[in-house]
Design a protein around this nucleic acid. Sequence first.
DNA 1: TCCATTCTCTGACTTTAGTCAGAGGAATGT
DNA 2: ACATTCCTCTGACTAAAGTCAGAGAATGGA
Lengths: 304, 304
Amino acid sequence: MIDRVRRFNRTVTQRIGALNDAFLSSDRSLGQARLLWEIGPQGCDVRLLRSRLDLNSGYLSRLLRSLKDDGLVVVEQSGTDGRVRTAHLTDHGLTERAMLDRRSDDAAASILAPLSVRQRTQLITAMIEVERLLVASTVLVTACNPRHPDARSCLRAYFSELSHRFDGGFDPTRSISADEEELTPPAGLLLVASLHSEPVGCGAVKFHDDARAEIKRMWVAPTVRGLGLGRRLLADLEVHAAANRIRTLRLETNRALDEAIGLYRAVGYHEVLAFNDEPYADYWFEKTLDRSTAPAPNLPDREH
Amino acid sequence: MIDRVRRFNRTVTQRIGALNDAFLSSDRSLGQARLLWEIGPQGCDVRLLRSRLDLNSGYLSRLLRSLKDDGLVVVEQSGTDGRVRTAHLTDHGLTERAMLDRRSDDAAASILAPLSVRQRTQLITAMIEVERLLVASTVLVTACNPRHPDARSCLRAYFSELSHRFDGGFDPTRSISADEEELTPPAGLLLVASLHSEPVGCGAVKFHDDARAEIKRMWVAPTVRGLGLGRRLLADLEVHAAANRIRTLRLETNRALDEAIGLYRAVGYHEVLAFNDEPYADYWFEKTLDRSTAPAPNLPDREH
DNA sequence: TCCATTCTCTGACTTTAGTCAGAGGAATGT
DNA sequence: ACATTCCTCTGACTAAAGTCAGAGAATGGA
């Protein structure tokens, strides 16, 4: 399999690398072209450009100035924060960016051109599949302090989604607690999934004194659904639970959350009688962990 | 569709680009690492390295010397040609190359690691498909003088294959002619398909004075079968024929060539009575070209 | 209010990647 | 045998890519 990945890598970089040379075929350097592209029609904060292109601030500043000198870009103070500067494309810059865009289109078209109609369809289908799974594999799952901004943003999104999907909304204060204290080791654990450092999902476990624990806060952002992320979060939580000598995992859920219910059943949770009085719950599930099959947890730990 | 190709491009270069950084993570420069890799365990002629890495001779020479100075490589006269020099890896060089290999393996594995077993299978399947079709799209079909070395090598391979597959072998002199004269415009046309400048297939058409022409010399190298190349060559020949006011295409073939027969039928050739006395033919086919659907020929012309 | 931090820019660097012209030795065709 | 071509190497360049330390302005928190 690894061999296959490497072979794919070789073929694709060869063919697609040629495609990227469209960027080089202008009289700008690659760095300038990438920057021109990344600024985009709406403009972009310099700090954002720096992180997106992963460039040293001195170097970026210099690139930006060379574009400014050529009249493609203007840089001005950002409205909200006086330290931040925002780059905008001039008309001239927009024209040149449009040319890059057209060249990239042509290059992409030249990949499809030699193929038959049927082959094109097959290629696009396979490309979509590869892309989907590469994105899935890019998602990073890390243990995260619930006070971290990424964690907070996930929990906020989670609550907001519940309040939309539940009949009659959702009020966290009426629900059984899983506060920051309870989701911080050793009391519990919160995992956050991120894609390109944007938080896109979470899941938590709340340990009890006996060998039991509860799964809480399972949420996956709409943009990354269908990538198996829920299953992955759940599996990682189980690994952590097993490492903490947990034998039984329990959870409750609402009938509106049908994908979640399907997931729980699919990975071995079975319905049990209500084990608490959570007002928003319609179903209660339980799973006994099989410690023999539990692999060692190997999650990178994000700085708290 | 073009949009999809570009999106694939973006995702893949991001994810696979990171994989390629395994090469950069050594303390060698990218150029040195690529060279070290390309020399390989068996060693390699310098001229071959130059063409494979597409490097300027001065630059390559310099890179090679830096590796030599570090004791990774030795360069010596090639046995057969005193002008050519051959690079070999020393033990030290082999060790360092093995490290690059291991890093690339690790990087490839890190793409599979976050995925479930099922997702891995899906990814590999889709990767194989993308790769197959990208290779198909990389094949270049060009009109070629039959005296060109590439053309000669294809025709030689074609005859050799016929002599293996036909019962009782194949003797070109007994067969109806399609010599170099007859396959050179305006008498006829030979198309050669190449992959990374290696000839991998051919197909020819021999024009007659009436609006008829014959398809000859259809051959696809075993390494690139299943990529739709035969169909593409045939379609391109038809386009050229139509551009030369040909209305009817004819061809004869041997019963041993079952893939070819299948292809001819699939693209609209129907069997007719023997129209010549080719001793090696078992079937005769004919197709009437529909000029309305013939697109303009857009083949790049290789220098003759 | 003050101090630490953030953000951008500048000058002074280095390394990498690459080009170009030409030299010198070896092979090839006539 | 001789001119031509091929292959490699060298010196002298250039451009791109990037690093580093620090300056100056703005912001945020104690």
